[in-house]
Amino acid sequence: MSKTKMSIDTSAELMENDILPKIKEVHTDPDMQCASSGDLPSALTEPASQKSPAQWAYERIIMYIQNFEKQLDNDHEVGLGLAGSNAGVIRIEGLGFYDPDIITYYGVNEAGAKTQLIQHVSQLNVTLIASPKHIDQPEPKRIGFRLAEGLDRDPDATT
């Protein structure tokens, strides 16, 4: 018989574990880098109940953008398309939120025009797209990594 270590959680710990964020992904490629692999920024390990819907969506979008960028080669950057829309692709240059329920994306569209998308969290439906980087740009811009640094530095992602 093997010895199994048993732990007993207090009712407070059980309640906290129930409200802490959970993430699960399954892919056909077993080598696929999941958004949940590696260390999550500290902001993503805090209870969602302490955040507005906008802040909580903002923090998770950052995690997905960063993970998507890890899979890109040096000729591509992350772009954004709206599911079910013919608005085209926006090369993401910034991301923000306005409490309690607005997410905003800043970037440049396929024609090179400055673009800002403002979206209510209840309408969140974003497609991340591998977009070719600008030909005059030696290295791709990795916005996900810059955004994630902010989540690690500051427990309140609003600053």
Rank of each mutant, 00 (worst) to 15 (best):
D101P: 02
L20R: 15
H134G: 05
K24E: 14
D136M: 03
D31L: 15
A83V: 14
S42R: 14
T159N: 01
T45A: 05
E93T: 07
I135Y: 06
A83C: 05
E149M: 13
S36T: 05
T10Y: 09
S2H: 06
D75W: 07
D39A: 14
K114Q: 03
T4I: 15
K22G: 11
T159M: 03
K51I: 02
A57E: 04
C34E: 12
D31W: 12
H120A: 11
R60L: 09
D73W: 12
R142N: 13
G38F: 10
R142A: 10
T104R: 09
P21I: 03
D9H: 13
V126I: 14
D99M: 00
V108T: 12
G96W: 00
D29M: 11
T45M: 11
G81T: 04
L80A: 15
T28V: 14
A130H: 00
F145V: 15
G88V: 10
I143A: 04
A87H: 10
E46S: 06
Q123L: 14
A111R: 07
E149H: 09
P30F: 12
R153Q: 03
M63E: 10
S52D: 05
A12R: 13
F145N: 13
S7W: 04
L80D: 07
I61C: 07
T115M: 04
N17M: 06
I92H: 01
A35D: 02
S131N: 03
A35Q: 02
Q116Y: 02
S11V: 13
P41N: 04
D156T: 08
A148C: 10
I135M: 03
D29P: 08
D154L: 09
E77Q: 14
A111T: 09
E77L: 07
P47S: 13
D29W: 13
S52G: 02
